[in-house]
Computed example of a mutant assay.
Amino acid sequence: MNSHSAVADGPLRVGITGVGVFLPEQVVDSEHLRQRVVASSGVALPAGVFERATGIVTRRVAGPGEYASTLAVGAARDALGRAGLEPADIDLLVFASASRDMVEPATAHIVQAELGSRAHALDVTNACNSFVNGVDLARTMILAGRARRALVVTGETPSRAVRQAPADLAQFRDGFAGYTFGDAGAAVVLEAVDRGGILDVDSETHSEHWSVGGIFGGGSRHPRSEEHTYFRGDGSELRKVFEKVGTSVLDRVRHRTGLSWHHFRYVLVHQVTVPYLERFVEITGVPEDRLVVTVPELGNVASASLGVQLHRVHDALLPGNRVLFVGLGGGVSIMTMVWEKA
C-alpha cells in the first residue's frame, strides 16, 4: 500500500481552466452488440443480457481511421477553445490514457503533431487512473516551475480490445467486462490560478492484484500474441478489491480536508457498470444527487470517464464549488482529487 497527499499550501495554486470532450459519432446499443456476438460466435445469449447485467444501453465506438490520438486531439481542441488558448500557449502536453496508438513512440507526439504545438510531450499510463495521474503529474510540474501551462489529454478506445467472436461460453465469460467498453476522448488545461484549484490528491495502490484483469499483449511478455490483445478479467474479483479498500481512501480525504459530502457540488467516480455505481453509493454513503451518471449512455470509457463527467457539469459550476474525483484503476489503484473552481 502506498498513500501520498499533496495539498497546495503556498502562494501558487494550480487549477483547471478548460475542459474538453470528443465522442465518436458511431453509437452501438447493447442489443445490437449481443446480436453481433451471437452471429459471429454461435454462443447462445438471451435477448437483453448485456443491458440487464450492466445497465449499459449504448456506447460510442471509434470508427475506421479513428484512433486514441484522434479522440485526444478532438478533446484537446475543445479544451483549448474553451480556455481561450492556442496550441502554442501550452508548454507541457501529457497523453494520459490506458489506450494508445502504438507501443512506440509516445502517443503524445502524435497528438502534438496534429495540434501543431511544441510542448514537452510524454505519455502516462495507469489503466483507468491514467487521466487523474496525468493531471497530478502536470500539476506537480507547474508547482515545481517546470511548466507554465499544461494540456492533459486522454483518448480511450477500449472497444478495440473486445472479443467479438468468443470460441465458447467460457471465453465469453472471461472477456465479459470488455462488453461494457465505450470510446471517448477528454482533456483539461491546467495553469496557475489566484484561488481555488486542486487542493488535495491521494492514492492507494494494491499491486498484488495486477493480474486480475487487463490487456496483456504488446509488451515483452506477449509481444506478438493476438490472443493477448483482447481484454480479459475477473470483474467480480476487481469489485471485491475496490470494495475492500475504497472506503478507507474516501474516509482519509474527508478527514484530512475537513470536507463532508455536502461540501462537494459533485462527486465524480469512475463508472464501470450501473450495479458498480449503485454499490459505490451503498458502501460510501455518497448522495446520489452528487453523481454525474454517464455509464448507461456511454459505457465504461476507461480513464476518460472522469473527464467526460466534468465536462458535463463544468459550465454550470460556480466559483468556490468543489468537486471530488474518485478514480478506480486496474493494477489495482484508487485515487482521489479535490478541485475547487476558481
Rank of each mutant, 00 (worst) to 15 (best):
M1Y: 15
M1W: 15
H4Q: 06
H4G: 10
D9A: 09
P11H: 13
P11A: 13
P11L: 07
V19A: 02
P24F: 14
P24N: 07
V27I: 13
V28N: 04
D29Y: 07
S30W: 04
Q35G: 09
A39I: 05
S40G: 02
S41R: 05
V43Q: 12
A44N: 08
G48K: 11
F50E: 01
G55Q: 12
I56V: 11
T58G: 01
E66K: 03
T70W: 04
G74F: 01
A75L: 01
A79Q: 09
L80H: 08
L80Y: 08
L92N: 06
L93E: 00
S99K: 02
V103Q: 14
T107G: 14
T107N: 14
A108M: 04
A108D: 08
H109I: 00
H109D: 02
V111K: 01
H120G: 04
N126P: 00
F131C: 10
V135I: 15
D136Y: 05
L137D: 01
L143W: 15
R148T: 15
A150L: 03
T154Y: 04
R160A: 13
A167D: 10
D168R: 05
L169K: 13
F172S: 01
G175T: 02
F176E: 00
G178R: 10
E191T: 08
E191R: 02
A192L: 01
L199D: 03
D202R: 13
S203A: 06
E204P: 08
E204M: 07
T205G: 04
H209P: 12
S211R: 13
V212W: 01
V212D: 11
G213H: 03
I215R: 11
F216K: 05
G217T: 05
G219K: 03
R221G: 11
R224I: 07
S225K: 14
T229Q: 09
F231G: 08
G233D: 07
G233E: 08
D234E: 10
G235L: 12
G235K: 11
R239I: 01
K244E: 11
T247P: 00
R252E: 13
V253Q: 06
H255V: 06
R256C: 02
T257G: 04
S260V: 05
W261C: 09
Y266F: 10
V269C: 12
P275L: 06
V281P: 14
E282R: 14
V286T: 14
R290W: 02
R290S: 10
L291Q: 07
L291V: 05
V295A: 13
L298F: 14
G299M: 07
N300M: 04
N300K: 02
S303Q: 05
S305C: 08
G307C: 03
V308E: 06
Q309S: 06
L310V: 08
H311M: 02
A316Q: 13
L318N: 04
P319R: 07
P319T: 07
N321K: 01
N321D: 15
G327S: 11
G329S: 07
G330I: 14
A342W: 15
A342P: 15
